[in-house]
C-alpha cells in the first residue's frame, strides 16, 4: 500500500518533462542562445518560458503560421509532453 501511494505521488509530481528543442528555418536565427533542453509540460508553456528570456524569439513563435511538432508529428500547442520528447518549431515551409 505504501509503495502504491509513492507511485501515485510520483505520477502527480511528474507533470514537468525535460524536452529537447529544435528550431528550423528563420527561427534558428533567433534561437542561438537558447539551451538545447527545457523543462515544460506543453509546447505553449515552452513558448511562454522562451518569451520571458528571449522576447524576439517569443514574438516569432507567436506568429500564427508557426507550427509545432512533438517527436516529428504536428500537434496542438496544448499537447502534454513526456520526458525526452523532441519539440520542434516550424516556420512556413519553402521547399520545392
Amino acid at each position: 500500500m505504501e509503495s502504491q501511494e509513492a507511485g501515485v505521488q510520483k505520477l502527480v509530481t511528474r507533470t514537468i518533462a525535460l524536452i529537447n528543442l529544435l528550431f528550423f528555418g528563420r527561427l534558428g536565427d533567433f534561437s542561438k542562445d537558447v539551451p538545447a533542453t527545457i523543462e515544460a509540460s506543453t509546447p505553449a508553456e515552452i513558448r511562454q518560458r522562451l518569451t520571458t528570456d528571449h522576447p524576439t524569439l517569443g514574438k516569432e513563435l507567436s506568429e500564427p503560421q508557426v507550427l509545432v511538432s512533438v517527436n516529428q508529428m504536428i500537434v496542438s500547442w496544448d499537447q502534454p509532453l513526456a520526458d525526452g520528447s523532441e519539440v520542434a518549431f516550424l516556420p512556413p515551409v519553402t521547399g520545392g
Partner: peptide
C-alpha cells in the same frame, strides 16, 4: 508537387 511545397519540412535560404 503542390503538397510538397506547402507541407514538407524544407526551408530555403
Amino acid at each position: 508537387m503542390d503538397y510538397l511545397k506547402t507541407k514538407a519540412t524544407f526551408w530555403k535560404q
